[in-house]
Design a protein around this nucleic acid. Sequence first.
DNA 1: CTCCATGGTCTAAAATTGAGACCACGTCTA
DNA 2: TAGACGTGGTCTCAATTTTAGACCATGGAG
Lengths: 143, 143
Amino acid sequence: MTGLRRDNLPTAQMRLVDLFENWSAGEFDPSNCPVRGILDRLGDKWTTLVVIVLAQRPHRFSAVQRAIPDISKRMLAQTLRDLERDGMISRQVYPTKPPSVEYRLTELGQSLLDPLVNLITWAEQRRPNIEGARAAYDASDRA
Amino acid sequence: MTGLRRDNLPTAQMRLVDLFENWSAGEFDPSNCPVRGILDRLGDKWTTLVVIVLAQRPHRFSAVQRAIPDISKRMLAQTLRDLERDGMISRQVYPTKPPSVEYRLTELGQSLLDPLVNLITWAEQRRPNIEGARAAYDASDRA
DNA sequence: CTCCATGGTCTAAAATTGAGACCACGTCTA
DNA sequence: TAGACGTGGTCTCAATTTTAGACCATGGAG
């Protein structure tokens, strides 16, 4: 019940309602939702950070590691592999001794930068709100 | 070497370069980066999905669970608690028997919808590219 | 009396992640 | 000539996180 009144709804919300209805219509299998499969990867804790680093300029494996000191080699290798598989970055091997490998954003990877910057900008702008809310919550008895 | 030429750089990338330089300037401690703390939560695998569900309308605990069948109660409870702590959703208890609890987006939560929709739109538009890249990668010997 | 639904918590098992050793190779230093 | 170092990783084992599902108190319906 309580159908949704779509008038007076902000644009983003309306869009989300539409999306959700479409998903639900096609017997929405959340674990099969393609958008979710993509969003999941972005939420990988390391993925966005690596993309931001590669947005500066192409990096070699160990340069990325230096830029993100607290990533383990294991996860860095995996993150880079996943990003390459998704076509977001390219991997170029130079046959020097020892061989060096350069990772760089593809056009697809570049195209992620716009929405990513939007999100970061939002996080920056809303940071005071969020930190305030956290402090208030922690000060209350629920903490 | 290869300092960055900032002319001819797309806007988003330039912005990211600036951000990164600011971060690095202040002896960038990635584990202390506030924006990262916020982005980490959004990448929580369940967080965005819950936000999308609550963007439709307020939901009760079990309604959210029905909307996202493959989330465990434990993680749903935790995700909702974290979102409440961050001031993104509000929790309203109605003293019915048994008591029911309603979760709804706050203004802060609503404000996330815009960047979130951008990201989802990007994912939708680029889905063919990404799936194509995945198929190509898996078909190659690296798989 | 029994079953259902409410909003969770708790425990044990499964999955993911992290720390760090290890590798082959060549080059630089002593 | 012997070590040590840097390259881009992989491998193993331990620590952390997530999941599945039992459980709880309450009250209403049958």
